[in-house]
Design a protein around this nucleic acid. Structure first.
Lengths: 182, 182
DNA sequence: CCCGCCATGTAACACGTTACATGATTTT
DNA sequence: AAAATCATGTAACGTGTTACATGGCGGG
């Protein structure tokens, strides 16, 4: 249950609607998750009838009524218990990496295109993270910067890796089996 | 469909049974995926009745009969087409990172424990990757080393990040909001 | 006038995890 | 004698993705 704890964590900051939650995730935390409504609302319903959150229906003129969710005492305790538990080691699920692995069955040109595209994307991501850091007022959560720093560190590592792969590719002309990549 | 292409990719190397596939993934490619049988067999069945693979039933004495799967021409073409497509940007799904984000609501001591545990795990992973590289004969796939190098680069980046976070934690005593993490 | 934003939700579908069932052989 | 290995598979369950349905407001 990944979204469950993520949502509880957001509600810890401030009460929010499902719409807000989804927006927040997609806008300032898109590197962590960008769920559709089909993930957000059902999760909130579950949390509600398990007593981890409460609703407050707010009528609005013109606009449809809001449902503002707040975290409850039991909800907070569940979240804390989960937080204290050690997190299990995680996989590198990147589709890109899987393609790298299988790309040896591809034309070298296609492989190089993948690398180039990746480099551009990584650069873009790095810059957008830089902008996120600079945004004033957005810093609701103090540890948000830690996460951004983490993501940037990963970007840098990826660039280093790309450098190495491309260098090897140019040196010994193609992905030969002799390359050792120490 | 992540497992689908992963399995097709393995079958590109050599015909295999579902059991073999799962073993291979869990042993030498565990950083990418370690699916249960409930993921492997159904996927193979799907691939089979879509014509992407073929079976060859091999009787054995004592042991139950094997079903050795091979990739077919259409299967190879599907895989190639997928390989050539650009891969979409991926999220940092790490449970650990989510806990870091929310850990500001935790006692600093608990947070430090998470960091320490993570450091140890990362070190262990790095070393096990080093051993994987050294294994002779295991190098069926030439690009396997690229993936290992990638994973190691990520490990190093993680260590750097941990260094920085721990240094900051010791300097200004706790995750203060003033820290900027440039 | 049409499009995007606010705001909720459901339904179909696909997929993965976990646990179970079977059963002989080889290793400890 | 117990446990792990080989080898297949199914069923329950949870959860995520996608697409759809609704409906008024405000800007271009």
């Amino acid at each position: 249950m990944s979204h469950r704890h993520l949502i509880l964590g957001l509600l810890l900051e401030a009460p929010m609607t499902g719409y807000d939650i989804r927006k927040r995730l997609c806008e300032t935390m898109s590197m962590i998750a960008s769920p559709g409504y089909g993930a957000v609302y059902p999760t909130l319903h579950r949390l509600l009838n398990e007593g981890a959150v409460t609703v407050n229906v707010v009528q609005q003129d013109g606009r449809p009524a809001k449902k503002v969710y707040s975290i409850t005492r039991p909800g907070r305790e569940e979240l804390w218990a989960w937080l204290r538990e050690p997190s299990e080691p995680d996989k590198i699920t990147r589709e890109f990496l899987l393609k790298v692995l299988l790309a040896q069955n591809l034309e070298p040109e296609d492989f190089k295109q993948h690398l180039e595209r990746r480099r551009k994307e990584t650069e873009t991501l790095y810059k957008s993270l830089e902008e996120l850091k600079a945004q004033p007022g957005q810093r609701v959560n103090g540890h948000h910067n830690l996460v951004i720093a983490y993501a940037q560190e990963m970007c840098k590592a990826e660039m280093r890796w790309l450098d190495r792969v491309e260098r090897d590719l140019n040196c010994d002309g193609g992905p030969g089996e002799a390359a050792v990549y120490t």
